[in-house]
């Protein structure tokens, strides 16, 4: 089986007014179709930068990113992003128009067809009643649902999620994680998911890439396919959780000592 996404030896750097910062150093990983691949690490490990590089917003200074054999050069609607920030939804469009926007802007669909598709995906995330409402009337969780519907409606080759639930309250976050898994059960899309929460990584991910900070390097790649919400607190779950915790914690001691 060939990987859908092949990230090979990717070094990412960005400039601040005073420094050239290396975000990741020679990171390799491969994502296969229908995987829920999680990039996990503390802040400063370059996981968001990696996701943006896959999205085409950052160009690697070294290494290569290939999606279905094609080199990634610029942003495109085959890699739909879901961001952490609630202001990712254009406020001048209603929920339905927001979901339709990438469909029509990318020329994938038009008019009635796009509207049908948008309605179907809004129903999938349970927001039928809010289809004609503007985003400022919605709660944070609902906005994130719209962003997910918008991304899924494009049926992208890969879904890129940049800490999509990090700004939500704990109860809503948990509900959203469950809903994401249900949606995945239904459509088996491929998702690349960035988080700094070990628990979220284990619940959401089928495979977890653990990154070390300053700069981000691959520390481990773990299997987490068998865990979901029902596994939280179970023995295996806790073992994996403390294993990852130790990896990240050991690193922190190193960097301070």
């Amino acid at each position: 089986m060939t990987p859908l996404l092949d990230v090979a030896g990717v070094t990412l750097q960005y400039k601040t007014p005073e420094h050239l910062v290396t975000a990741t150093y020679r990171v390799d990983f491969q994502v296969f179709p229908s995987e829920r691949f999680v990039l996990l690490g503390p802040s400063g490990c370059g996981k968001s930068s990696l996701l943006k590089a896959v999205g085409g917003f950052l160009t690697p200074v070294e290494g290569e990113i290939r999606l279905s054999g094609q080199g990634v050069e610029r942003p495109g609607p085959d890699r739909m992003m879901v961001f952490q920030e609630f202001d990712q939804l254009p406020p001048w469009k209603t929920v339905k128009e927001n979901v339709m926007f990438p469909l029509t802007a990318s020329g994938k669909m038009r008019g009635r067809e796009a509207e049908e598709r948008a309605r179907a995906y809004i129903a999938k995330v349970g927001l039928e009643r809010f289809a004609d409402v503007h985003p400022h009337m919605l709660s944070g969780g609902m906005k994130q649902r719209v962003a997910i519907a918008r991304a899924l409606a494009m049926e992208p080759a890969i879904l890129l999620m940049d800490e999509p639930f990090a700004a939500l309250d704990a109860l809503t976050r948990r509900k959203m994680q469950e809903e994401l898994l249900l949606l995945w059960e239904e459509a088996r899309f491929t998702v690349l998911f960035v988080t700094h929460s070990i628990e979220e990584a284990i619940i959401v991910g089928s495979r977890i890439l653990v990154l070390s900070p300053h700069p981000g390097r691959v520390k481990a790649e773990l299997d987490a396919d068998k865990f979901d919400h029902r596994a939280v607190g179970g023995e295996d779950f806790q073992r994996l959780q403390s294993r990852i915790h130790d990896m990240l914690f050991a690193d922190r001691v190193e960097s301070h000592g």
């Binding site: 999205g55 610029r74 990712q88 990438p102």
Partner: peptide
Amino acid sequence: SETLRMAGRNYGLSGVRYVVL
């Protein structure tokens, strides 16, 4: 906001269409 800009570019918008839309 940077997020909104990235969302727009994510749709594949550029040039005049990016400014207008």
